[in-house]
Design a protein around this nucleic acid. Structure first.
Length: 471
RNA sequence: GGCGACGUGGCCAAGUGGAUAAGGCAAGGGUCUGCAAAACCCUCACCAUCGGUUCGAAUCCGAUCGUCGCCUCCA
């Protein structure tokens, strides 16, 4: 039994063998904080949260780093437009982002390095690359010399000559090769800048990730993650910089999530089809988004629309229902039912692990969970006692926890809480009417509560009710 | 133009060579219920098309059609 993980570098599933047994060093590219985080960021964060949680479940000590790019052209431009300090702008969005992550039940990273705090490290690496002939200063900038790197293109499967066709002709002619990318950018007046051997400036985008990795993890890490839109050029460049600097392999496994599809296309600012995490959460639960991610393969694009979100909410209702206790009149299940239950517990535990071991096949894992749910509900109907149900529900709790589902009732319940005693009053009153077989009035109460978003369910042991916005 | 991914039932989506193609949502029938709701039981797929490899293919190969991503900042 071992974990298989798809490595973009080799385009195959490989057995996970970490540098240090039992320990995983994992780095995921975080956001550039110049705006509110959107649900595409959320997808990426959720994918790697699930991977991290599962690795921990399997006994690994996971050292998890996610950076913030807090020095960047876009941040500077936006701050100038707003007339505020770029670092204040960045700080605000970092706070926002971390609030969003908490709302989505994403575990905090072990480290959240920031580009602006790694300048010494960045300068040291840039200088090291210059010393090795891998980079060259040019009028206050420093560029990476792609032609010097025989391995350039190994992650994205491109070669420099193929790419040249796509390069814009009006590109900067000062560079030795159009594909050479900036490690250090000279500052214009009024821009944030740090002193460097090449004059005042700031780091390029790619170098910061190399520097932060080196700072926190040393020469090599186990897993490097990010969206598949980062494969080229960002991750390609990270590899080039880090490996030429250290002379060692940078990351063992490159893991990339697919893009969120909104109306059949990628969400992006130029298309104007952005949904922020804040906006999403005013309409839907965090669990529903997580379910969407879990119910598909992380490497594929995910379809996002109201339909699939509704389906997710309904599916989650089913999961929550399975935690309902045994009925009060339960007399104990038959031997065959008890056997079915105990067999399903084993089957689900094994099935879950087999699925997740296979490149984090969370959709397969969910399938196993729903089979357990079916058997739990069946056993309850067949008269299983709480004692008999408990082990199965414990496993259900354990596995949904690994996937990071909170199974909370949703925020509407909290908002409605103050109305709860009055609802209960009506429910109790209706129970009396039902005892008197006054069906007309009883139904009237049920229907009118339904219109107010309260769903009643009569059972042998009384009436239960819950808020349901969709009602 | 170059590189890559994908196309499984009404919808979402596992499965990537072998016996009946997971699971969820929706739908239809039934049990239960005063009636509902929920739950439970039952039903519902020749895996884009065509050709090839194989004893055997959704799964491998080729072609065609379609969708998407990257090649510029992007999770």
């Amino acid at each position: 039994m071992s974990i298989q993980i798809f490595n973009t570098l080799t385009r195959t599933k490989e057995q996970l063998e970490t540098i240090e047994p039992g320990k995983v060093r994992m780095y995921v590219c975080g956001p550039t904080v110049y705006n509110k985080a959107h649900i595409g960021h959320a997808m990426s964060a959720l994918v790697f949260d699930v991977i991290r949680r599962y690795l921990e479940y399997r006994g690994f000590d996971v050292q998890f780093a996610m950076n913030f790019t807090d020095v960047d052209d876009k941040i500077i431009r936006r701050a100038n437009e707003m007339g505020i300090d770029p670092f204040d702008l960045a700080e605000g969005y970092i706070q926002d982002f971390q609030k969003n992550m908490a709302e989505l039940n994403i575990k905090p990273a072990s480290f959240n390095p920031r580009a602006s705090k790694e300048i010494d490290q960045i300068i040291a690496i840039v200088q090291g690359l210059i010393d090795k002939g891998a980079a060259y200063p040019l009028e206050g900038d420093v560029y990476f010399r792609v032609r010097n790197d025989p391995n350039y293109g190994k992650l994205s499967g491109r070669n420099l000559d193929d790419m040249r066709a796509g390069v814009r002709k009006e590109a900067d002619d000062r560079k030795e090769d159009p594909m050479d990318f900036a490690l250090w950018k000279s500052a214009k007046p009024g821009e944030p800048a740090w002193e460097s051997p090449w004059g005042p400036g700031r780091p390029g985008w790619h170098i910061e990730c190399s520097a932060m990795n080196y700072h926190y993890f040393g020469d090599s890490i186990d897993i490097h993650g990010g969206g598949n839109d980062l494969i080229f050029p960002h991750h390609e460049n990270e590899i080039a910089q880090s490996e030429l600097f250290t002379g060692k392999p940078f990351a063992r496994y490159w893991v990339h999530n697919g893009m969120l599809q909104l109306r059949g296309e990628k969400m992006s600012k130029s298309l104007g089809n952005i949904i922020s995490i804040d906006e999403f959460l005013t309409q839907h639960s965090a669990d529903s988004f997580r379910y969407l991610i879990l119910n598909s393969a992380y490497r594929n694009p995910i379809i996002f629309n109201d339909d699939v979100l509704m389906q997710a909410e309904k599916a989650l209702d089913r999961v929550r229902f399975a935690f309902n206790p045994a009925v009060e009149s339960a007399k104990g299940a038959s031997d065959s039912v008890k056997q079915t239950l105990s067999e399903q517990i084993n089957a689900t535990r094994n099935g879950f692990i087999n699925a997740m071991d296979d490149d984090f096949n969370s959709a397969g894992a969910l399938g196993n969970i729903f089979e357990l749910i079916r058997v739990i509900n069946y056993s309850r109907d067949e008269g299983a006692t709480q004692l008999e149900l408990q082990p199965a529900q414990d496993l259900l709790m354990e596995l949904t926890n690994v996937l990071g589902l909170t199974l909370a009732d949703g925020s509407e319940k909290k908002q409605m809480a103050e109305a709860d005693p009055f609802v209960q009053l009506l429910v109790d009153l209706r129970l009396e009417l039902r005892k008197q077989k006054n069906w007309g009035l009883a139904d009237q109460i049920r229907n009118q509560l339904f219109e107010k978003g309260v769903v009643l369910e009569d059972t042998k042991d009384g009436t239960t009710w819950h808020w349901d916005r969709r009602a």
